[in-house]
């Protein structure tokens, strides 16, 4: 693999991500696995499509790793995010953080997923039985007016 942060159009292998942070002085490896959910507030998702600005997304994932290193100097982080068409239960993202003690690994892992949702240029499109919609674009464009599909966000 050669690097700890990547975007892939192939199914993610959890063990590959975990292996990147496995080391002798770790007492904990926390893994977060983000998967495709079928129902959101009662609305059924058929499948998702993820798109990324790959070069920048990988840079931003790495930047999250640097931020984690500043906050938790002993943490090692690896993150993989998938793009393309994903079916229900498929894995969209895998985060692995190893630290000497468990509390830091939980916190750093949570930090990573929250930052992904803020700064990494990746988008998902929900496909429903009655339509499709890019998620993330309704909040700013339709201030105060729920756009079609908002209920399912």
């Amino acid at each position: 693999m050669g690097k700890n942060y990547w975007i892939s159009d192939k199914p993610l292998v959890i063990q590959e991500v975990v292996d990147l942070v496995t080391r002798r002085n770790a007492g904990a490896i926390n893994t977060f696995i983000g998967t495709v959910r079928e129902f959101t507030k009662g609305k059924r998702t058929l499948y998702l499509e993820y798109e990324a600005y790959k070069a920048m997304a990988e840079k931003k994932l790495e930047e999250i790793g640097h931020e984690i290193k500043e906050k938790w100097p002993e943490a090692e982080t690896a993150i993989a995010h998938r793009v393309g068409r994903l079916e229900i239960t498929d894995i969209a993202v895998v985060i692995a953080v190893s630290t000497p003690h468990r509390a830091d690994s939980y916190e750093a892992s949570r930090y990573a997923i929250e930052r992904i949702k803020e700064i990494v240029p990746i988008w998902k499109k929900e496909h429903w039985e009655d339509g499709e919609h890019w998620i993330g674009d309704q909040k700013e464009t339709k201030q105060g007016i729920p756009a079609k599909g908002d209920a399912s966000k």
Binding site: Y50, A57, A92, I116, K117, W134, G136
Partner: peptide, 10 residues
Amino acid sequence: IAFIPPVSGG
């Protein structure tokens, strides 16, 4: 230059 609509990864 890239224009980045609100992101929704994860």
